[in-house]
Design a binder for these strands. Structure first.
Lengths: 336, 336
DNA sequence: GTGAAAGCGCTAACAG
DNA sequence: CTGTTAGCGCTTTCAC
């Protein structure tokens, strides 16, 4: 193995075709002028030899590497991988490759990674995290390449993409209301998280100010405990519970089942994140709000390319719509 | 924003230092001979100007890009992200960056990504998947760069890294036995998976041939159903259950609780994968076998670099040890 | 129509 | 000790 047959260079193609490298280059790139015959001969030969131009050599000339960096502190991949998939989807056709840099909240490590990417002449960097209200531990303010922030805190004047959590929450609550649920409750994570606040705000807006909102942690365990509160002797006994994430929702559903309260017969439950691994394993499967991170990634990819091509992009926050994915935990029929 | 101050080139440094580019290059790389004074002057200036050499230009000369590709079909990141973290950890110091390519079991897409990476002159590619007995849908046999396979099926004569599932399973079963459990059972995924077979084989070896092995799916739901079988009227009523993965284990534990059977008081349960998101949320938290994918990644990183430096590496399968991570689902004290 | 030559940013011989 | 020169693989004027 590893019998690496040397890579064919343009000179090889040119020599074998009996033309100069200049002509060969033009022939293959469809530029310059020459007889159709010459062009086709070169093309055919290049094909036969399996010639592939050295992207680095091209990059040196064009000053574009067709390479972008994805910087993230989300070691779990919960956010970064769907995003990555979207980015790839948007850029693969243009031959763009992505450097993934996981920086585990280590500023020095981050700096080193960013430098390495810059040295490798990335055309831009996309920054992502696991919280919308916390910045990565790196100062990117004086990068010499464009930056797009996706699902992380960013400077005011940056190009930033986030999910529209309020809209997503509204979809969920509306659904609950449409199903005839009238005593709603919201169980979510710590109040200090912007995501929790946004989702809770939207909930209050539609469910009314007196509908209970319970802040806690982003865990199943908290979901359990919240149910104990909600269904205590003189608790509110809600018939619809919107949860701040899927793990909480799973805890809630498990706790309800343990109390003999039927989901979705007696209580409808909706989660947030649509994390397949938990939403799918919940019994019954969980209806949840999907943040469309993949689409966010696609958009991030398009934006970073546009920027790297020098196109002017309006800075500021762009909110991308969420989508309710209906399973069986809320009752009623599937809509999509 | 995006007021990109032009990057400083070596020529700039040289000009300002009043020396030739050659001297500047040598000064900064610690090569050649010159007065300490000259060298330091250049170094200082480079520092002040924030000069960073263009890695592409270097790569063109040295024929080494300090870039590797990670090819995966694991869209979830369950395997690829820990691996990635390990690879990065091993290679970041040498300034190596990693192209991540998620190919969703699409051969054509895979081919395009591989070509793009090759065009960008990666020094090697690491291949990974989500099953040890299934190859990625690409033929990499005639790549012109070294390949290392990690946690995926590979050709006989390739350099391949896998977790030692049998050893991991043995650790788990031994633990159960040490805890005094004598009626063991194994609940695992589909028999056709090599991983299931290996783990089951090790189980049988230690637990005895008549200890029940239940093949099914890799899901929580199957864990539930398996408990129904095991604890049926005249079922084996085991006191120790080793599960083929964490999701099954979680299903098993939930089912046991629902039957009023105490974990770990009455039955000890151990999972496999140590997937924090499920092992940590299980009640009680799940003892599980960790495949040390990060270490696998580190090793893959080291190997690919060695290969790309032309070092001879013995081809063949390398099994990396697993490690039991003790939580509370099996009883007894924590060991580590 | 085609090719010679310059050059992207850097390193490595080889002179001086 | 330092600078000149030749290239890495490619694209692109600009002569011929």
């Amino acid at each position: 193995m590893a019998v690496s047959t040397e890579r064919i260079r343009l000179t090889d193609v040119a020599r074998l075709a009996g033309v100069s490298v200049a002509t060969a280059s033009k022939a293959l790139n469809g530029t310059g002028r020459m007889t159709l015959e010459t062009r086709q001969k070169v093309k055919r030969l290049a094909d036969e030899l399996g010639f592939r131009p050295n992207a680095m050599a091209r990059a040196m000339i064009s000053q574009r590497s067709f390479t972008v960096g994805l910087l993230t502190n989300d070691t779990y991949g919960r956010f970064s991988l769907p995003l990555m998939a979207g980015i790839t989807e948007a850029l693969a056709d243009e031959g763009v490759s992505v450097f993934l840099c996981g920086i585990e909240d280590d500023a020095e490590m981050a700096r080193r990674h960013v430098d390495a990417m810059l040295d490798k002449q990335v055309d831009g960097v996309i920054c992502t995290g696991k919280r919308i209200d916390k910045a990565l531990p790196v100062d990117l303010s004086d990068l010499s390449v464009p930056i797009v922030y996706a699902y992380t805190k960013a400077p005011e004047d940056a190009v930033t993409l986030v999910s529209d959590d309020a809209q997503g929450a509204r979809e969920a609550v509306r659904r609950l209301i449409e199903l005839g649920r009238s005593k709603l409750a919201h169980v979510t994570g710590p109040e200090k998280f912007a995501a929790a606040q946004e989702r809770a705000g939207a909930f209050a807006e539609l469910a009314g100010d007196d509908a209970p909102i319970l802040y806690g942690e982003w865990s199943e365990d908290w979901g359990h405990r919240a149910v104990a509160e909600l269904f205590a002797e003189n608790g509110p006994q809600p018939d619809g519970i919107f949860c701040g994430n899927d793990q909480i929702a799973r805890g809630v559903i498990d706790a309800l089942r343990e109390r003999g309260i039927g989901v979705p017969e007696t209580v409808s439950v909706i989660g947030f994140d649509n994390w397949e691994i938990v939403a799918g394993a919940t019994r019954p499967p969980l209806t949840s709000v999907d943040m469309n991170l993949r689409e966010l990634g696609r958009e991030a990819g398009r934006l970073i390319m546009a920027l790297s091509e020098g196109k002017a992009i309006e800075p500021g926050l762009r909110r991308m719509p969420c989508q309710l994915v209906v399973r069986s935990s809320c009752g009623g029929g599937r809509t999509n």
